[in-house]
């Protein structure tokens, strides 16, 4: 049963990041644009990944996806960790909310934060360079899937972490490598067979590859395969998150 309580928690989570809009939306958008300016300008002439597409057309979807993913992750993980550390998580825990409701509310807010941040990057980028669009539907689908997967990971990381060190370890040793080794700046077809094999196990690779397909109509693997992989991950992470919430692990002492 998903009720008004869940809706309230979702609204509260959205409200929270909008209150610090500069830090949660603007700053990440600006830093991504710096990537675009630096890499886009330097490699524009020199690098061609897909025949017939400029390097910045290749780069933009990757950068947007990276911003979106990192912010979806940051939203759920840091909100949960902060309320645990401040102790105010008790307010939510005392309420008659089910584990599923808590999950949906945090996930929903993480997705929205991802979409808003990613969207801002895309919007500003489109003012600077030409952005190709192949299928708006696929772009949206992959944006949703990606912020969902990363938002769910953030929920797990937020519950598991006890201090910011833990969270940054999670970010630096898991999220960042997954993002950087997923083809934001290059196509994995340029990699050695070994690293191609490794990337095949990286969910973020499928998210970026499918997302880029929505822009360019070209991809390393068929986009339907990416949809299935992303869905599989989302379902798996949902199962894990809800089970953890239900067990009370690290939340209900």
């Amino acid at each position: 049963m998903i009720g008004f309580g869940c809706w309230t928690l979702f609204k509260k989570e959205v409200w929270r990041f909008l209150k610090v809009f500069v830090q949660t939306v603007l700053a990440p958008a600006v830093s991504t644009l710096l990537y675009l300016l630096v890499f886009g300008v330097v490699f524009e002439e020199a690098v061609v990944v897909y025949e017939g597409h400029s390097y910045s057309s290749f780069l933009i979807p990757g950068l947007v996806m990276m911003t979106l993913a990192q912010n979806a992750f940051a939203n759920s993980s840091s909100s949960i960790l902060q309320s645990k550390m401040n102790g105010n998580i008790v307010f939510m825990l005392l309420a008659p909310l089910s584990s599923l409701e808590v999950y949906i509310a945090f996930l929903g807010a993480a997705i929205l934060r991802g979409l808003i941040t990613g969207g801002s990057v895309l919007l500003i980028a489109s003012l600077l360079v030409d952005v190709e669009i192949y299928s708006v539907g696929l772009i949206l689908l992959f944006a949703l899937l990606a912020s969902g997967v990363l938002g769910a990971l953030g929920i797990i990381a937020g519950i598991w972490s006890e201090k910011y060190d833990h969270l940054s370890a999670f970010q630096n040793f898991i999220i960042l490598p997954l993002t950087f080794l997923s083809g934001v700046f290059f196509s994995i077809q340029g990699l050695s067979p070994f690293w191609q094999q490794v990337s095949a196990w990286n969910p973020v690779f499928y998210l970026i590859d499918g997302f880029r397909y929505g822009f360019l109509g070209v991809s390393d693997v068929p986009y339907l395969q990416s949809v299935w992989v992303a869905l599989l991950f989302l379902v798996m992470l949902t199962g894990i998150s809800v089970a953890i919430l239900r067990s009370g692990y690290k939340l209900r002492g």
Binding site: G3, F4, G5, W7, T8, L9, K11, K12, W15, R16, K19, V20, S83, N86, G87, N88, V90, F91, M92, A95, P96, L97
Partner: peptide, 25 residues
């Protein structure tokens, strides 16, 4: 609760409406 916990993001009124909303109100 015994500890003086609070959510630094919100005002008194916001906090009360949020808490009340958690209970479906």
């Amino acid at each position: 609760p015994q500890e003086l916990v609070y959510d630094p993001f919100f005002t008194v009124w916001e906090m009360l409406t949020i808490q009340s909303g958690y209970f479906g109100l």
